[in-house]
């Protein structure tokens, strides 16, 4: 199989996996199997999916470095955009469906609830990354593109904090997510140190 066909296959796979959570939610919705509180259920599953997808996006580069499999580098963009897609739906689900666009409560929540502010921040920092994810912008921004796209670490960190901050007592999954993110970041720092000392 040549490189182009393999990449195409990988991209199709990313699309299938990327759309699966959305299809699953819609399917559960139409068959009335979202539980007693469907609005909350959808909200939480969208949040989980956004964070997991973002962590997957962040693990592509370390995997590439460890395995030398450079063919997966082009997957960063579609996976990252899926993360942004789920994060956006998660964000608008909160404003439009959960708060039914009542601006007064949205404003109060944003200003007074740190975890909502933090979550909104995670989304906001990803907007410029999604916008500049095209080939044209990569070319135009040159070296600055990579610098700008380091914002993804801020988003991921805020995402984990947002997750951690809203559970009542069972912090297991937020801690798992935080640990995965920490490992992914440490791998990058170590890599940079090694490069500097060389």
């Amino acid at each position: 199989m040549n490189k182009k066909r393999r990449l195409l296959l990988l991209k199709v796979l990313v699309w299938i996996l990327g759309l699966a959570p959305a299809v699953w939610l819609v399917w559960r919705g139409f068959t009335d199997r979202l539980g007693a509180n469907p609005i909350e259920q959808v909200q939480h599953r969208l949040g989980d999916t956004a964070l997991i997808t973002l962590l997957v996006a962040l693990s592509i580069t370390p995997i590439r470095r460890f395995t030398g499999w450079n063919g997966i580098a082009p997957l960063r963009r579609p996976v990252g955009l899926f993360a942004f897609f789920y994060l956006s739906v998660h964000f608008f689900w909160w404003g439009v469906v959960d708060q039914t666009l009542s601006l007064e409560f949205i404003a109060v929540d944003l200003l007074e609830r740190p975890y909502i502010m933090v979550g909104a921040g995670a989304w906001l920092f990803m907007v410029p990354l999604a916008v500049t994810s095209t080939k044209g912008w990569i070319r135009r921004l040159g070296k600055n593109w990579q610098r700008l796209h380091r914002l993804v670490y801020v988003s991921a960190g805020l995402g984990v904090l947002h997750f951690y901050w809203q559970v009542k007592a069972d912090t297991y999954w937020p801690i798992v997510a935080g640990s995965v993110l920490a490992v992914l970041l440490l791998l990058r720092i170590r890599r940079r140190r090694i490069r500097v000392s060389e």
Binding site: A36, N37, I39, E40, D98, Q99, T100, F105, V108, D109, E112, R113, P114, Y115, W165, Q166
Partner: peptide, 19 residues
Amino acid sequence: VNHPRWSQARERRLGEFRR
């Protein structure tokens, strides 16, 4: 009197759309 992390001003009655 709000919970430090979320508002107690409104609630979702299960089965209802608007809080």
